[in-house]
Every structure is written in structure tokens, then in C-alpha cells.
Amino acid sequence: MKNRNLKGLIVSVWGLLVILVPTVIFPPCSHMLELVDGGTVPMKCFWSGRAEIGIGFLILCGGLLLFFAKSAETRKFISVSTLLTSLVGIAVPAFLIGGCAMETMTCRTTTFPALYVLHALLILFCVVSFFSAGEVGSGTTKASL
């Protein structure tokens, strides 16, 4: 397998892991908030988990594009866009949506730390992938994405 294909595969697996963390591996808190009218709604961390599924899907697609892309320029663009997606993946549980207020809740003990670690490693990988994509202008321009 070519090096660039391997990188695409790794990013795809990473995207899949980001999807699996809030759904299977470390699901967020399952308690529901009771409303005054007696109804129930999920907590903030549930919505953070849902957003991460979407982010994971974008990363997975980025990985697939990286798998097929041949030109260095395209590969650099994909690396940058995946890196930015991962930054959003950190911002969602940290600031944009957030989670439970107590450190000992499931979302803050397992779900979010696992997502932070995954995204941090992916950001590092994207930086390496960007600089090892080769010179812009190299690679096959014909039939490249």
C-alpha cells in the first residue's frame, strides 16, 4: 500500500473512532432533565455527542478523499480541512455546546477526554500529513481530485 493511501486509511479509521466514542465506546450521560411540564429532554453532553458524530463523519470523508487524492495540493487542502474539523471537534464539547457541570459525570470523565485525545492526535497527524504531502505542483494532475 502506498504511503498516501495509508494516511487516508488512518484518517478514515480516526473519523470512525470519533463516531464510535459517543455512540459505543464511551457514551455520554444518559440521564434526562425533567421539565416543569413533566416532559424530559437530554442533557447538553448528549447534543455534544450528536455533534461529534457529524464531525466524525466529516473526518471519515476527509480520510477517504485523502486515500484517492493524488496531487500534493489537494492532499494539503484535505489535511488542513481535516485539521480544522478536528479543532471544531475539540471546541464542541469544550465551548460551543459543552457538557455537565460536574467533573465526575460520565461525559467529563470518559467521553470528552477520549474525544480530546483523538482530535489532538489527529491534528498532529494532519500537520505531519501536510508537510509530507510533497511539493505543490508535483503528483499526477491528470485524473487527480
Partner: peptide
């Protein structure tokens, strides 16, 4: 009770 912002008993 398990109530409030994030449904945790303290």
C-alpha cells in the same frame, strides 16, 4: 436529587 443543570446528586 438527580436534578438541576446536569442531573447529578451531590
Amino acid at each position: 436529587l438527580r436534578a438541576g443543570c446536569c442531573s447529578y446528586p451531590i
